[in-house]
Design a protein around this nucleic acid. Sequence first.
DNA 1: AATGAGATGTTATATTGTTACATCTTTAAA
DNA 2: TTTAAAGATGTAACAATATAACATCTCATT
Lengths: 163, 163
Amino acid sequence: MSSSAIPYRPHNHSACVHQALSDARSVCQRQNARLTPIRERVLELIWQSHKPLGAYDVLAVLAEDGHNAAPPTVYRALDFLQQYGLVHRIASLNAFTGCTHAGEHHTCLFLICRACRTVLELTAPAVSDAVAKASQAEAFTPEETIIEIAGLCPNCSSEPTHE
Amino acid sequence: MSSSAIPYRPHNHSACVHQALSDARSVCQRQNARLTPIRERVLELIWQSHKPLGAYDVLAVLAEDGHNAAPPTVYRALDFLQQYGLVHRIASLNAFTGCTHAGEHHTCLFLICRACRTVLELTAPAVSDAVAKASQAEAFTPEETIIEIAGLCPNCSSEPTHE
DNA sequence: AATGAGATGTTATATTGTTACATCTTTAAA
DNA sequence: TTTAAAGATGTAACAATATAACATCTCATT
Ligand SMILES: [Zn+2]
Ligand SMILES: [Zn+2]
Ligand SMILES: [Zn+2]
Ligand SMILES: [Zn+2]
Protein backbone atom coordinates (compact mmCIF):
# COMPACT_ATOMS: atom_id res chain seq x y z
CA MET A 1 0.00 0.00 0.00
CA SER A 2 1.47 3.33 -1.02
CA SER A 3 1.43 6.24 1.41
CA SER A 4 -1.22 8.93 1.12
CA ALA A 5 -1.04 11.43 -1.67
CA ILE A 6 0.31 14.84 -0.77
CA PRO A 7 -2.99 16.67 -0.31
CA TYR A 8 -4.11 14.04 2.16
CA ARG A 9 -1.25 14.40 4.60
CA PRO A 10 0.46 17.21 6.43
CA HIS A 11 3.10 18.71 4.23
CA ASN A 12 5.02 21.85 3.61
CA HIS A 13 2.31 23.47 1.59
CA SER A 14 4.21 26.63 0.88
CA ALA A 15 6.53 24.39 -1.09
CA CYS A 16 3.50 23.36 -3.21
CA VAL A 17 2.70 26.99 -3.84
CA HIS A 18 6.27 27.89 -4.58
CA GLN A 19 6.62 25.00 -6.98
CA ALA A 20 3.36 25.87 -8.72
CA LEU A 21 4.36 29.48 -9.21
CA SER A 22 7.75 28.48 -10.44
CA ASP A 23 6.28 25.97 -12.88
CA ALA A 24 3.84 28.59 -14.06
CA ARG A 25 6.62 31.02 -14.77
CA SER A 26 8.48 28.54 -16.91
CA VAL A 27 5.35 27.36 -18.74
CA CYS A 28 4.50 30.95 -19.60
CA GLN A 29 8.02 31.84 -20.55
CA ARG A 30 8.28 28.86 -22.87
CA GLN A 31 5.05 29.85 -24.57
CA ASN A 32 5.73 33.53 -24.56
CA ALA A 33 2.67 34.21 -22.45
CA ARG A 34 2.56 37.01 -19.94
CA LEU A 35 2.12 35.92 -16.35
CA THR A 36 1.13 39.38 -15.16
CA PRO A 37 0.94 40.29 -11.48
CA ILE A 38 -2.81 39.79 -11.36
CA ARG A 39 -2.60 36.42 -13.04
CA GLU A 40 0.17 35.32 -10.76
CA ARG A 41 -1.69 36.52 -7.71
CA VAL A 42 -4.84 34.67 -8.77
CA LEU A 43 -2.82 31.52 -9.31
CA GLU A 44 -1.27 31.92 -5.88
CA LEU A 45 -4.71 32.31 -4.34
CA ILE A 46 -6.04 29.26 -6.12
CA TRP A 47 -3.10 27.38 -4.68
CA GLN A 48 -3.71 28.63 -1.17
CA SER A 49 -4.87 25.14 -0.32
CA HIS A 50 -5.82 21.88 -1.99
CA LYS A 51 -9.46 22.90 -1.81
CA PRO A 52 -10.93 24.53 -4.88
CA LEU A 53 -11.80 28.19 -4.73
CA GLY A 54 -14.72 29.94 -6.39
CA ALA A 55 -14.15 32.93 -8.63
CA TYR A 56 -15.90 35.15 -6.14
CA ASP A 57 -13.73 33.83 -3.33
CA VAL A 58 -10.72 34.93 -5.31
CA LEU A 59 -12.39 38.24 -5.95
CA ALA A 60 -12.96 38.74 -2.23
CA VAL A 61 -9.30 38.19 -1.43
CA LEU A 62 -8.24 40.57 -4.16
CA ALA A 63 -10.52 43.11 -2.53
CA GLU A 64 -8.77 42.50 0.80
CA ASP A 65 -5.50 43.02 -1.03
CA GLY A 66 -6.78 46.50 -1.70
CA HIS A 67 -7.15 45.66 -5.34
CA ASN A 68 -10.35 47.14 -6.64
CA ALA A 69 -11.30 44.23 -8.87
CA ALA A 70 -14.52 43.32 -10.62
CA PRO A 71 -15.62 39.86 -11.78
CA PRO A 72 -14.15 40.12 -15.28
CA THR A 73 -10.71 40.62 -13.82
CA VAL A 74 -10.89 37.31 -12.04
CA TYR A 75 -12.58 35.41 -14.83
CA ARG A 76 -10.03 36.66 -17.33
CA ALA A 77 -7.17 35.60 -15.13
CA LEU A 78 -8.78 32.22 -14.60
CA ASP A 79 -9.38 31.83 -18.34
CA PHE A 80 -5.75 32.58 -18.98
CA LEU A 81 -4.57 30.14 -16.35
CA GLN A 82 -6.87 27.43 -17.68
CA GLN A 83 -5.71 28.05 -21.20
CA TYR A 84 -2.12 27.42 -20.21
CA GLY A 85 -3.04 24.40 -18.13
CA LEU A 86 -2.22 26.01 -14.81
CA VAL A 87 -5.62 25.62 -13.19
CA HIS A 88 -8.62 23.39 -13.69
CA ARG A 89 -12.25 24.23 -13.30
CA ILE A 90 -14.25 21.70 -11.31
CA ALA A 91 -17.62 21.76 -13.02
CA SER A 92 -19.51 20.10 -10.21
CA LEU A 93 -18.32 22.77 -7.77
CA ASN A 94 -18.12 25.86 -9.97
CA ALA A 95 -14.67 26.25 -8.54
CA PHE A 96 -11.04 26.21 -9.53
CA THR A 97 -8.06 24.22 -8.40
CA GLY A 98 -4.38 24.38 -9.20
CA CYS A 99 -3.18 21.90 -11.77
CA THR A 100 -0.63 19.51 -10.37
CA HIS A 101 0.64 18.53 -13.79
CA ALA A 102 1.29 21.95 -15.26
CA GLY A 103 2.87 21.83 -18.64
CA GLU A 104 2.17 18.15 -19.23
CA HIS A 105 -0.54 17.09 -21.63
CA HIS A 106 -2.89 15.07 -19.55
CA THR A 107 -6.42 13.87 -19.09
CA CYS A 108 -7.05 14.04 -15.44
CA LEU A 109 -9.51 12.88 -12.89
CA PHE A 110 -10.52 14.56 -9.66
CA LEU A 111 -11.24 12.92 -6.34
CA ILE A 112 -13.31 15.44 -4.41
CA CYS A 113 -13.93 14.94 -0.72
CA ARG A 114 -17.42 16.04 0.22
CA ALA A 115 -16.40 16.42 3.85
CA CYS A 116 -13.16 18.41 3.79
CA ARG A 117 -13.44 19.48 0.15
CA THR A 118 -9.86 18.51 -0.59
CA VAL A 119 -9.29 17.67 -4.23
CA LEU A 120 -6.75 15.21 -5.53
CA GLU A 121 -5.93 15.36 -9.20
CA LEU A 122 -4.83 12.13 -10.80
CA THR A 123 -3.87 10.96 -14.21
CA ALA A 124 -5.25 7.47 -14.70
CA PRO A 125 -4.28 5.97 -18.03
CA ALA A 126 -6.58 3.00 -17.48
CA VAL A 127 -9.51 5.39 -17.14
CA SER A 128 -8.48 7.48 -20.12
CA ASP A 129 -8.08 4.38 -22.25
CA ALA A 130 -11.46 3.02 -21.23
CA VAL A 131 -13.04 6.36 -22.02
CA ALA A 132 -11.33 6.50 -25.39
CA LYS A 133 -12.56 3.00 -26.21
CA ALA A 134 -16.10 3.77 -25.15
CA SER A 135 -16.10 6.89 -27.33
CA GLN A 136 -14.65 5.05 -30.25
CA ALA A 137 -17.27 2.34 -29.98
CA GLU A 138 -19.87 5.03 -30.63
CA ALA A 139 -17.83 6.72 -33.37
CA PHE A 140 -17.61 9.76 -31.13
CA THR A 141 -14.56 12.03 -31.33
CA PRO A 142 -13.68 13.13 -27.81
CA GLU A 143 -12.06 16.49 -27.22
CA GLU A 144 -12.51 17.35 -23.55
CA THR A 145 -13.09 14.85 -20.80
CA ILE A 146 -14.36 15.73 -17.37
CA ILE A 147 -14.14 13.13 -14.64
CA GLU A 148 -15.13 14.23 -11.17
CA ILE A 149 -15.58 11.76 -8.38
CA ALA A 150 -17.17 12.94 -5.19
CA GLY A 151 -16.85 10.91 -2.03
CA LEU A 152 -14.73 10.70 1.08
CA CYS A 153 -10.99 11.08 1.24
CA PRO A 154 -8.99 8.67 3.41
CA ASN A 155 -8.88 11.13 6.30
CA CYS A 156 -12.58 11.83 6.27
CA SER A 157 -13.72 8.27 5.70
CA SER A 158 -11.86 7.10 8.78
CA GLU A 159 -13.71 9.62 10.93
CA PRO A 160 -17.39 9.13 11.64
CA THR A 161 -19.46 11.45 9.48
CA HIS A 162 -20.96 13.93 11.91
CA GLU A 163 -24.74 13.78 11.55
CA MET B 1 -19.17 -2.27 -36.41
CA SER B 2 -22.49 -1.70 -34.69
CA SER B 3 -24.98 0.80 -36.12
CA SER B 4 -25.30 4.26 -34.63
CA ALA B 5 -26.91 4.68 -31.26
CA ILE B 6 -30.50 5.89 -31.27
CA PRO B 7 -29.88 9.59 -30.63
CA TYR B 8 -27.53 9.70 -33.60
CA ARG B 9 -29.94 8.50 -36.21
CA PRO B 10 -33.44 9.38 -37.35
CA HIS B 11 -35.93 7.53 -35.24
CA ASN B 12 -39.43 7.68 -33.98
CA HIS B 13 -38.67 10.02 -31.14
CA SER B 14 -42.18 10.14 -29.80
CA ALA B 15 -41.63 6.49 -29.00
CA CYS B 16 -38.63 7.55 -26.87
CA VAL B 17 -40.80 10.03 -25.03
CA HIS B 18 -43.64 7.58 -24.61
CA GLN B 19 -41.30 4.93 -23.29
CA ALA B 20 -39.65 7.36 -20.90
CA LEU B 21 -42.97 8.50 -19.48
CA SER B 22 -44.17 4.97 -19.16
CA ASP B 23 -40.95 3.90 -17.41
CA ALA B 24 -41.24 6.88 -15.12
CA ARG B 25 -44.76 5.92 -14.12
CA SER B 26 -43.70 2.45 -13.16
CA VAL B 27 -40.58 3.57 -11.34
CA CYS B 28 -42.64 5.99 -9.30
CA GLN B 29 -45.40 3.53 -8.65
CA ARG B 30 -42.92 0.91 -7.46
CA GLN B 31 -41.38 3.39 -5.06
CA ASN B 32 -44.62 4.97 -4.00
CA ALA B 33 -43.54 8.35 -5.32
CA ARG B 34 -45.97 10.81 -6.79
CA LEU B 35 -45.41 11.64 -10.43
CA THR B 36 -47.60 14.72 -10.33
CA PRO B 37 -48.73 16.54 -13.48
CA ILE B 38 -46.00 19.16 -13.17
CA ARG B 39 -43.32 16.56 -12.67
CA GLU B 40 -44.56 14.52 -15.57
CA ARG B 41 -44.76 17.58 -17.78
CA VAL B 42 -41.20 18.59 -16.89
CA LEU B 43 -39.98 15.09 -17.65
CA GLU B 44 -41.77 15.21 -20.99
CA LEU B 45 -40.13 18.54 -21.80
CA ILE B 46 -36.69 17.26 -20.84
CA TRP B 47 -37.32 14.40 -23.22
CA GLN B 48 -38.41 16.66 -26.06
CA SER B 49 -35.12 15.82 -27.74
CA HIS B 50 -31.79 14.18 -27.02
CA LYS B 51 -30.32 17.60 -26.32
CA PRO B 52 -30.19 18.68 -22.71
CA LEU B 53 -32.45 21.48 -21.60
CA GLY B 54 -31.71 24.17 -19.04
CA ALA B 55 -34.01 24.75 -16.10
CA TYR B 56 -34.98 28.13 -17.48
CA ASP B 57 -35.72 26.61 -20.87
CA VAL B 58 -38.17 24.31 -19.14
CA LEU B 59 -39.56 27.27 -17.28
CA ALA B 60 -40.14 29.14 -20.52
CA VAL B 61 -42.12 26.29 -22.01
CA LEU B 62 -44.21 25.98 -18.87
CA ALA B 63 -44.97 29.67 -19.27
CA GLU B 64 -46.08 29.03 -22.87
CA ASP B 65 -48.25 26.25 -21.47
CA GLY B 66 -50.02 28.99 -19.58
CA HIS B 67 -48.61 27.66 -16.35
CA ASN B 68 -47.56 30.53 -14.17
CA ALA B 69 -44.41 28.90 -12.84
CA ALA B 70 -41.44 30.32 -10.98
CA PRO B 71 -37.94 28.83 -10.79
CA PRO B 72 -38.53 26.77 -7.65
CA THR B 73 -41.31 24.88 -9.40
CA VAL B 74 -38.91 23.70 -12.06
CA TYR B 75 -36.00 23.02 -9.77
CA ARG B 76 -38.21 21.02 -7.44
CA ALA B 77 -39.52 18.92 -10.27
CA LEU B 78 -35.99 18.39 -11.55
CA ASP B 79 -34.76 17.47 -8.07
CA PHE B 80 -37.53 14.93 -7.79
CA LEU B 81 -36.79 13.46 -11.19
CA GLN B 82 -33.08 13.26 -10.41
CA GLN B 83 -33.77 11.63 -7.09
CA TYR B 84 -35.70 8.86 -8.77
CA GLY B 85 -33.12 8.48 -11.51
CA LEU B 86 -35.36 9.80 -14.27
CA VAL B 87 -33.16 12.66 -15.38
CA HIS B 88 -29.49 13.52 -15.13
CA ARG B 89 -27.88 16.89 -14.69
CA ILE B 90 -24.99 17.59 -17.03
CA ALA B 91 -22.66 19.65 -14.88
CA SER B 92 -20.61 21.02 -17.75
CA LEU B 93 -23.75 22.41 -19.38
CA ASN B 94 -25.92 23.31 -16.40
CA ALA B 95 -28.61 21.37 -18.16
CA PHE B 96 -30.72 18.27 -17.80
CA THR B 97 -31.25 15.21 -19.93
CA GLY B 98 -33.58 12.26 -19.69
CA CYS B 99 -32.06 9.12 -18.24
CA THR B 100 -32.05 6.26 -20.66
CA HIS B 101 -31.60 3.68 -17.94
CA ALA B 102 -34.40 4.67 -15.62
CA GLY B 103 -34.81 2.35 -12.73
CA GLU B 104 -31.47 0.61 -13.20
CA HIS B 105 -28.59 1.29 -10.87
CA HIS B 106 -25.88 2.61 -13.08
CA THR B 107 -22.81 4.77 -13.33
CA CYS B 108 -23.07 6.48 -16.60
CA LEU B 109 -21.01 8.49 -18.98
CA PHE B 110 -22.13 11.21 -21.35
CA LEU B 111 -20.93 11.85 -24.86
CA ILE B 112 -21.81 15.46 -25.56
CA CYS B 113 -21.58 16.81 -29.09
CA ARG B 114 -20.34 20.37 -29.10
CA ALA B 115 -21.82 20.94 -32.55
CA CYS B 116 -25.38 19.62 -32.38
CA ARG B 117 -25.49 19.30 -28.57
CA THR B 118 -26.89 15.78 -28.76
CA VAL B 119 -26.08 13.74 -25.68
CA LEU B 120 -25.61 10.00 -25.60
CA GLU B 121 -25.71 8.30 -22.24
CA LEU B 122 -23.70 5.14 -21.90
CA THR B 123 -22.91 2.68 -19.19
CA ALA B 124 -19.32 1.61 -19.57
CA PRO B 125 -18.29 -1.00 -17.04
CA ALA B 126 -14.66 -0.78 -18.13
CA VAL B 127 -14.68 2.91 -17.29
CA SER B 128 -16.48 2.42 -14.00
CA ASP B 129 -14.06 -0.31 -13.01
CA ALA B 130 -11.05 1.79 -13.87
CA VAL B 131 -12.47 4.67 -11.88
CA ALA B 132 -13.15 2.41 -8.92
CA LYS B 133 -9.59 1.09 -9.03
CA ALA B 134 -8.09 4.55 -9.29
CA SER B 135 -10.13 5.66 -6.27
CA GLN B 136 -9.20 2.62 -4.30
CA ALA B 137 -5.53 3.15 -5.03
CA GLU B 138 -5.83 6.46 -3.19
CA ALA B 139 -7.97 5.02 -0.41
CA PHE B 140 -10.77 7.28 -1.58
CA THR B 141 -14.39 6.21 -1.13
CA PRO B 142 -16.32 7.23 -4.24
CA GLU B 143 -19.98 8.11 -3.99
CA GLU B 144 -20.94 10.06 -7.10
CA THR B 145 -19.08 9.91 -10.37
CA ILE B 146 -19.47 12.42 -13.15
CA ILE B 147 -18.03 11.59 -16.55
CA GLU B 148 -18.76 14.04 -19.32
CA ILE B 149 -17.01 13.86 -22.63
CA ALA B 150 -17.36 16.74 -25.02
CA GLY B 151 -16.48 16.31 -28.66
CA LEU B 152 -18.11 15.55 -31.97
CA CYS B 153 -20.78 12.98 -32.58
CA PRO B 154 -20.53 10.76 -35.67
CA ASN B 155 -22.89 12.97 -37.65
CA CYS B 156 -21.10 16.18 -36.85
CA SER B 157 -17.58 14.84 -37.23
CA SER B 158 -18.34 13.71 -40.77
CA GLU B 159 -19.39 17.22 -41.73
CA PRO B 160 -16.80 19.96 -41.96
CA THR B 161 -16.95 22.20 -38.93
CA HIS B 162 -18.28 25.48 -40.27
CA GLU B 163 -15.71 28.16 -39.54
C1' DA C 1 7.50 59.41 -30.44
C1' DA C 2 3.85 56.54 -32.92
C1' DT C 3 1.57 52.39 -33.38
C1' DG C 4 -0.89 48.28 -32.34
C1' DA C 5 -1.74 44.25 -29.59
C1' DG C 6 -2.70 42.66 -25.41
C1' DA C 7 -4.23 43.47 -20.74
C1' DT C 8 -7.09 45.74 -17.40
C1' DG C 9 -10.88 48.89 -15.61
C1' DT C 10 -15.72 49.74 -15.30
C1' DT C 11 -20.57 49.36 -15.61
C1' DA C 12 -24.20 46.86 -16.45
C1' DT C 13 -26.51 42.69 -17.20
C1' DA C 14 -27.33 37.69 -18.09
C1' DT C 15 -27.78 33.10 -16.32
C1' DT C 16 -28.37 29.67 -12.91
C1' DG C 17 -29.97 28.34 -8.52
C1' DT C 18 -31.79 29.02 -3.52
C1' DT C 19 -34.33 30.75 0.76
C1' DA C 20 -38.27 31.56 3.20
C1' DC C 21 -42.74 31.43 3.98
C1' DA C 22 -47.68 31.03 2.55
C1' DT C 23 -51.12 28.01 0.70
C1' DC C 24 -53.06 24.06 -1.20
C1' DT C 25 -53.71 18.81 -1.74
C1' DT C 26 -53.46 14.23 -0.52
C1' DT C 27 -53.32 10.68 2.71
C1' DA C 28 -54.48 8.44 6.55
C1' DA C 29 -55.68 8.42 11.25
C1' DA C 30 -59.14 9.51 14.84
C1' DT D 1 -66.21 12.38 8.34
C1' DT D 2 -63.62 15.56 10.47
C1' DT D 3 -58.92 16.34 11.40
C1' DA D 4 -54.15 16.37 11.49
C1' DA D 5 -49.77 15.62 9.28
C1' DA D 6 -47.00 15.24 5.33
C1' DG D 7 -46.14 16.40 0.93
C1' DA D 8 -46.51 19.44 -2.96
C1' DT D 9 -46.99 23.94 -5.03
C1' DG D 10 -47.25 29.19 -5.20
C1' DT D 11 -44.88 33.43 -4.60
C1' DA D 12 -41.49 36.94 -3.78
C1' DA D 13 -37.21 38.05 -3.00
C1' DC D 14 -32.52 37.13 -3.45
C1' DA D 15 -27.88 34.75 -3.91
C1' DA D 16 -24.26 32.97 -6.69
C1' DT D 17 -21.99 32.45 -10.94
C1' DA D 18 -20.67 34.30 -15.33
C1' DT D 19 -20.57 37.43 -19.46
C1' DA D 20 -21.08 41.63 -22.65
C1' DA D 21 -19.63 45.90 -24.12
C1' DC D 22 -16.82 49.52 -24.24
C1' DA D 23 -13.20 52.61 -22.27
C1' DT D 24 -8.51 52.95 -20.88
C1' DC D 25 -4.02 51.61 -19.98
C1' DT D 26 0.65 49.16 -20.70
C1' DC D 27 4.18 47.45 -23.15
C1' DA D 28 6.82 45.94 -26.97
C1' DT D 29 8.00 47.22 -31.51
C1' DT D 30 8.60 50.36 -35.05
ZN1 LIG E 1 0.14 21.39 -0.71
ZN1 LIG F 1 -11.75 14.81 3.20
ZN1 LIG G 1 -35.43 9.76 -29.35
ZN1 LIG H 1 -23.45 16.32 -33.19
